[in-house]
Write a protein that binds this DNA or RNA. Structure first.
Lengths: 341, 341
DNA sequence: GTGAAAGCGCTAACAG
DNA sequence: CTGTTAGCGCTTTCAC
């Protein structure tokens, strides 16, 4: 009880009067051990407060049993869901998760990957910031890699789990057009958030398909930061007072739109309809509650982890896994009536 | 390049024509190595794509260089901030962070602690769910423990970093009384969120000090879940139509209050003022924007990590570290006018 | 400065 | 069924 350092397998073996291999068998669940012996070992272990060392085991097995997870920012609601999904899956599969945030910086991301490799993680899940990190080497040397929520152009061979962002934006656009809107603006992310350009392309394609002009002037891109988002939204709404609806490609942009509309004394949805991608928890707290496309962050994380740990075979076959989104209609979009604004 | 298994220190030593000890010295920064030799080693390592194994090093050093972090739920905004703070600090100190969520379940928490001990983490930071886990053993056997945002009655000797919740609630109460409110309700958490009862006590004390009656009937407790929070808020506001202000002890309760007020067609703040603890990102998106007490989640995490890794000496001395909160006044509280409601 | 050797705690043959 | 043995990759005396 007052041992300076914790008991080892050797101590337990001695105390139980067995060989260390037997103790190992008891704790690793490998091989067969007589019930009586097992009891004796367990008793000795309990007595000594023995904890098998994952370090020793890991060294022998040359894997740590952990997985590395890289997200841009753990405080982003979507990322947090992603993390939660990975944790949930890892738990059922008996692995632990090392988490780190790259904050969109490819250099930093590369460092994190390096560190994960040193830790000999069993695999890495990342919402990648860029191609600086040596993903291929990471996947090859000691672990496999799965991307989540973002596909990297040059690394198509890395298995990936995505939300069907295109489908989400499409349903948003169809919904607004269905309400009668014709001058619909799109607030997109400049540095890609999701497959680069996918959302914007889906927006344009859908409008075109429905015979609504997608004016270039109504499609703006902002850096994914609070101030930039606000600036973009304000610029748009002031420049084009005739827009009747805006689609925001991510929650920061949606928030900016709400704030700007309030600032400009535009009523939502009477003066302008607002809808966005990402059904953050506060969407229903807004007044009016915000119509949004829910992306399954948790499922993406869970699935990515499953892919990594459980289905190494199926990885990457047939392109990225794409999970469905869901349009959640609330009160922030209204039917267009003639003569508005 | 096509090695089946990654290069070891031995491979590098051979390739560089030196002993493994020298390679070790180069990579661990220990001891002195001639510049020429170092270059040779580095070159060989680069050639072989060598990554020192944290497993081997950890085994030798009997510590993994990582820390374990336990929160109730990574998707909770406050917890997410806490995690971000720990990550930030760990990064500067060169450690990695294993994260897991206990979801308020002491059993699960105990399992996580066990697992962390097996991993031989250098320390554990927890927003503890309960006393089931053997915190003392964890602190003794192989790592130290620091609590964050919650103090455990029976474990006062564990160093702890807290927000000044009492101060936060006090400022909220003072603010509302200052606006003229006299019938102020308190929505508290039944299962403790923060030091048990601290917020409620601060609320009652403050009112009393200011000569305002704190009616028991106006102080209600809800389980920290969405539905329970809503039920509690609805019950309160319907039962006592005469309350003019409500203080919510955490963001779930504040949100519930907002929703219920809207449901009941109460205008905020004209009919009822609402303020809450926890300045979540969407507080300013509400209409009207919510007055709230900001708790420094990130700082708490950072400080806890610092305490764990950098200042083992100062730990626990002089009671818990208590970080200040800040009252953020927005538009959800108004001055009481005679004859309201 | 540098190398040889002895483990750190554990698992996996291989004998018995 | 169980014990013995040989490492897994690294750090660290201790000589040279």
């Amino acid at each position: 009880m007052a041992d300076r350092r914790s008991a080892t397998i050797k101590d337990v073996a001695a105390a139980a009067g067995v060989g260390i291999a037997t103790v190992s068998r008891v704790f690793s669940g490998t091989g067969a051990v007589a019930d009586a012996t097992r009891e004796r070992v367990l008793a000795a272990a309990r007595e000594l407060d023995y904890r098998p060392s994952a370090l020793g085991r890991g060294l022998k097995l040359r894997r740590s049993g952990g997985i590395g997870l890289i997200v841009p920012d753990v405080t982003d609601p979507f990322c947090a869901e992603l993390v939660a999904g990975v944790l949930a899956c890892a738990r059922t599969l008996g692995g632990h998760v090392i988490v780190d945030a790259a904050h969109g910086d490819p250099e930093r991301e590369a460092e994190i990957v390096d560190r994960f490799v040193e830790q000999r993680v069993d695999g890495i899940i990342a919402r990648p910031a860029g191609e600086t990190a040596d993903w291929r080497a990471a996947a090859r040397v000691c672990s496999s890699v799965v991307f989540a929520d973002r596909i990297l152009p040059g690394l198509a061979e890395i298995p990936t789990v995505l939300a069907d962002d295109a489908g989400g934006v499409r349903s948003l656009a169809e919904y607004l057009v269905g309400l009668g809107h014709r001058r619909i603006a799109f607030l997109g992310a400049a540095a890609p958030g999701g497959e680069p350009g996918v959302r914007e392309r889906a927006f344009r394609d859908t409008l075109e398909r429905l015979g609504v002009p997608a004016e270039d002037d109504l499609v703006v891109a902002a850096r994914p930061a609070r101030d930039a988002a606000y600036a973009a939204a304000a610029g748009l709404l002031q420049r084009r007072a005739d827009v009747t609806a805006v689609v925001a490609a991510e929650h920061l942009l949606g928030e900016a739109a709400v704030l700007v509309a309030r600032e400009l004394d535009l009523r939502v949805p009477a003066d302008v309809s607002i809808a966005m991608v990402d059904d953050v928890p506060w969407a229903e707290l807004c007044d009016p509650p915000l119509t949004a496309v829910a992306r399954p962050g948790r499922d993406i994380g869970y699935r990515a982890c499953e892919l990594l740990l459980r289905e190494p075979a199926r990885r990457g076959r047939g392109g990225p896994v794409r999970l469905p989104t869901e349009l959640v209609v609330r009160g922030s979009c209204g039917a267009l009536r003639a003569g508005r604004r």
